[in-house]
Design a protein around this nucleic acid. Structure first.
Lengths: 334, 334
DNA sequence: ATGAAAGCGCTAACAA
DNA sequence: TTGTTAGCGCTTTCAT
């Protein structure tokens, strides 16, 4: 099982080394006879082309850099797995870069990305202030932001229709008869957090309501503290829209176990993402679905399209998705 | 931000190309003056050595292949994140390979691993029948199995002390006064599943008890069905040891919501892993901790040691860890 | 300590 | 279609 080179295969097959190369290069021409001889010799020797050498010449590594900040939120492991599967099926692989949402860190990651000559980059759970994306795009590497958008620019992104989703939630809660709504938002440094909030608040503003909002930072502790604060205020809400499921679980835990409140009787809760855990009976959370599968497919398509043809214009895709009613809300008044 | 080569840096610094190389090669010699000139020119040009070219010569890619079967169990995303952080700090990165636990798939993954010339391999949530590990080891690539062992062989592995853990659980449940114990085991094709089961059953055998066991396959549905079956039998258990937390959550859901049973009053439940979710109030699960941090550190150390010195003998490390008592069991009778 | 020269394993012109 | 040739960007002898 030692290193086998194309030259050795060539000798064994009685052809030139470049003939071997052609047989293993998708778009190359070789006679049926040559192909057969080479394939035979190759399997006998256990030959496979060396990716590194190939990458060095073609400039294509068939490696996609995945930049990810945290994996505590169940949504991201799921996405990672699906992305990996989808890319693997297309002959690509994911090189993982963990990055804090800080400036210096982003620079370092950026350099590493370039070092490895990744063909493309997917960023997930990375904030929008990050010029990392900008700089990679500037370096000519296709970038797709997964589950994050960026205000009016030239970077591809795939998200769900977050603004619309926020509106849906507001309309739904109103239709349930709730009148004192509140919002524990996703991190205000992320488009996702902002959009959900603005959609939600817009509808309520149309109804003349001003909504208390606390930034939950996509973090359990922060969200739990926010929930406590809201419920202990003079006019506690009768329904809370939480910026994602991950925080919503923390809110539910706090409401039920710390404050002894009943959900949805005392407060209704709506989350965002519809991660698997949301459907488990222990939480049974009403939530806006994010269609991970479709988001992943779109991300992969977009990225590979741009890799194959760099002239392709960046796109910003928003996928609509339904509200999933479960046990943390009462049905709408009819 | 275009491609900058060592030759360009050399010209600008007024030295030879090999001088530049030496400055960027850890163990090489260069005068202070040369180093300074080169460093200056390099930063001005934004030069960084090309990993691919370097990898091709040295045979070291600084890439670690991570083979992983599924990420639904919270334990693995957590491990992935920690592994990535630890390796990144040492200048390595993780290339992800998702693989089903099937023979043909393993072969394919194995080839891809070799194609990318990974310096080392970590397998997680991969079964033991997989000769993938054997073959990689045979190909001279250091392999560490994370959270899996393999019966008496020459591959490094890092696990918790699963057999001992199983024993702990049995002794604990007996001390709580339970007399009708049962076990929903981890996948019997994994050492982890087997060891936990054998430790657990060994203690009970010593007490003359024969324990009903159903293989939960590390799967929610399978575990839930097993729990239902057990509770509906003529002599339902008064305590169930579930092979990991991921399944234990499913069991708790079924017990509480489908069967209307109270935990721990009707049945006590113990899991294994102590994933973050186990500590959340909604489950508040008593469980054997697996010390992810220490397991990750050990894995990284072991792997890098073997990469740096291939002569190092493989090791099988078992890390002991405590039982974390929470709300799904009653304290021991005193 | 430094430069010149020889490749690592492969792809991509270029002729034939 | 095929073989020959020239590199990709770098590390590493080998002289100096």
């Amino acid at each position: 099982m030692e290193k086998v080179t194309s030259l050795q295969v060539a000798e064994r097959a009685g052809v030139s080394q470049s003939a071997v190369s052609r047989v293993f290069t998708p778009g190359a021409s070789a006679s049926a006879k040559t192909v057969e001889k080479v394939r035979k010799a190759a399997t006998e020797l256990g030959y496979r082309p060396n990716m590194m050498a190939r990458a060095m010449i073609t400039g294509k590594s068939r490696i996609i850099g995945l930049v990810v900040a945290y994996l505590d939120n169940q949504f991201y492991p799921l996405a990672l797995q699906l992305l990996s599967n989808a890319l693997q099926a297309k002959g690509y692989h994911i090189l993982v870069f963990t990055a804090a949402n800080t400036r210096g860190d982003a620079d370092e990651v950026m350099q590493q990305l370039l070092d490895y000559q990744v063909d493309g980059i997917i960023t997930a759970s990375v904030g929008m202030t990050n010029d990392l994306t900008q700089r990679c795009a500037a370096a000519g590497i296709p970038v797709v932001m997964f589950n994050r958008g960026q205000a009016g620019d030239d970077i591809s992104s795939v998200t769900s229709a977050n603004k619309l989703g926020g509106r849906h939630v507001a309309e739904f809660l109103l239709s349930c008869g709730h009148r004192r709504l509140a919002h524990i938002s996703g991190w205000s440094g992320s488009s996702t957090g902002q959009d959900r909030q603005s959609g939600f608040c817009a509808v309520l503003a149309e109804h003349g309501q001003d909504v208390p909002v606390i930034d939950g930072m996509f973090d359990r502790e922060t969200a739990a503290a926010a929930a406590r604060k809201m419920m202990e205020s003079a006019t506690p809400p009768d329904a809370i829209f939480v910026g994602n499921d991950h925080m919503a679980f923390a809110v539910l835990d706090t409401l039920r176990h710390d404050l002894g409140l009943r959900v949805p009787d005392d407060v209704a809760i709506v989350g965002y993402d519809d991660v698997p855990l949301a459907a488990w009976p222990a939480y049974n959370l009403t939530t806006m679905r994010q269609p991970v599968n479709r988001m992943v497919d779109a991300t992969v398509n977009m990225l590979l399209t741009r890799i194959e043809d760099p002239a392709t214009a960046p796109r910003r895709l928003e996928i609509e998705s339904p509200l999933i009613q479960r046990g943390t809300t009462k049905g709408p008044k009819t």
